[in-house]
Amino acid sequence: AVVSPAQRSDLPIQIKSNELSSDGAGKVATFSGSVVARQGDVTIFCDRLVVHYGAKERDISKVEAQGNVRIVQGNRQGLAGRALFDNQAGTIVLEDNPRISQGSDTITGKVITFYLNEQKSVVTGGTDRRVEAEIKPKGAGIDVGTKP
C-alpha cells in the first residue's frame, strides 16, 4: 500500500541484523551482518546500517546504509554501495555505483535520489560518470520494422 508523506515518518522502523553495537553517548547505533530495515512499504537490505540519533535520544535523525545496499519500494529497486536515508525529508540518496530500476527500465548515474513519498527518482551524472538510461518500450519483443 502506498504510504502518504505524513504517515511515513511516523511509521515504526524495524531493523533486523546479526549484531548491534551502540556508543555510550547514545548518538550512534550500528547494526551489522545481513541487515534488513523496514518502514511501511520500503525495505533496505545492506551489510551495515548506522543509525544516527537526533538531539533527543532514540529519535532517528538519519540512517546510513553501507555495503551491498538494495532498496525496494513497490516495483522500484535501487542498488548502490552506500545510501543515506533521511526520514524527515522522505528521501534516500544512493551513491557509489548507484543503479535504479522500475519494471524493466534501468538508469545509472553518479548520484540517485529516491523520493519515497512521490514515486519519483532523480539521477545526476558527474564528470566521471554520465547518466545512462535503458528504457524497454512496453510490449517489447515485437519487431516493428519488418513485415510478418
Partner: peptide, 15 residues
C-alpha cells in the same frame, strides 16, 4: 547485542 537482533523504533520521528 551479539546475535539475532531485532530493533523497532516506534514513530520513527526525527528532528
Amino acid at each position: 547485542v551479539t546475535s539475532d537482533v531485532t530493533a523497532t523504533y516506534r514513530g520513527g520521528k526525527s528532528q
